[in-house]
Computed example of a mutant assay.
Amino acid sequence: MHTMWKGSISFGLVNIPIKLHAATENKDISLRTLHKECHSPIKYEKVCPVCGKEVGKDDIVRAYEYAKGKFVVLEDEELEQLRKENEDKAVEIVDFVKMEEIDPIYFNKSYYMSPNEGGVKAYSLLRKALEDSKKVGIAKIIIRSKEQLAIIRVVENTLLMETIHFPDEVRPSADVPNIPTGENITKKELDTAVLLIDQLTTEFEPDKYHDEYRTALLDLIESKKTGKKTVSAKEKEPAVSNVTDLMAALQASIDRTKPATKKKTTRKKPASKKKEA
């Protein structure tokens, strides 16, 4: 399993060297956009809207827009230094809480934790302590230049780090529009709804749920491949030298702008008179 972060977790005087591994993966099917006429993949270029020029990687800087059209430019070196100062710190578990006290709306992304060199005993100690206390740890960690709040809990004998949103990142439910305040329902309607819930209540078995849309899309793609209903991108034609055409055009332009030359008229000499005999 790919290691995406190395560091250490500490609680009290116990320090645990650990590695993080992504616990989930995105299985969305990525679709390309093609030119309808020749089926070539579309290129997206970065163009300055003011200069109209294509902008290369070396010509781009990052900035914070503090007001409309007003920016504070941040140098890559400044951001890298700030990241290192925070990322090099050990991640400290600051609190322990009960899992049921955390609303699922705060959950973000999950990472498996494995012990790094010399961290096996401390890893086992934290795992056992969390299991026995039925608590989860609250910690802070820098991942991909962003400080994350996280919980550390045990899942099937493995420590799991679950990043969670900060409180100011969760929008208040009071801001949701058109929420009914009263309960204009009859007892019969409520009893029927509760009965339906009871009939559909079961044990949670995650393996029985599947992404039916993704399966259908893969089947559609496979059937088109099997039926040879595929297209190929046209190869880019090599640039044809237009030097000859250019020279011809230039010469024609020169000829067109040349002043018309006047034809020389040859004056005839007057006939000489013959001498009289």
Rank of each mutant, 00 (worst) to 15 (best):
I29C: 03
D219N: 05
R256Y: 05
G56R: 12
I141V: 11
K268Q: 14
K264N: 01
F96H: 15
G137E: 02
N86L: 06
V120Q: 13
W5D: 11
E131L: 04
F107E: 08
S8H: 01
K134L: 03
N108V: 10
P177V: 11
E101W: 11
P41K: 13
I143C: 01
I142Y: 09
Q81G: 04
E117R: 11
D103R: 07
T244Q: 10
Y209S: 15
R32F: 02
K140C: 06
A67T: 08
K70G: 04
K140D: 08
H165T: 09
C51V: 03
N15R: 15
K98V: 08
E77L: 08
T192C: 10
L200Q: 04
A193Y: 02
A67R: 12
D191N: 11
I164W: 06
E189Y: 00
L159S: 01
P167D: 15
A216I: 05
T244N: 09
V170Q: 05
Q81W: 05
S272M: 14
K258D: 09
S145T: 08
M4P: 05
R144T: 08
T202K: 14
N116Q: 12
F204Y: 15
L220V: 00
E101M: 15
T202P: 06
L218P: 09
K269I: 10
I151R: 03
A248W: 02
K121N: 01
R153I: 00
L246H: 08
G227V: 14
T181L: 13
S114F: 02
G118C: 08
K36R: 03
H2D: 05
K43L: 13
L200R: 07
K187A: 12
L196A: 14
Q251T: 09
L126M: 12
E189V: 06
L190P: 03
P115A: 04
S40P: 00
V50F: 12
Y111L: 02
N116T: 08
L20R: 06
N86K: 09
I16C: 04
V231S: 00
K268N: 09
S223D: 12
M1S: 15
R127K: 11
Y123W: 02
E276D: 15
A150L: 10
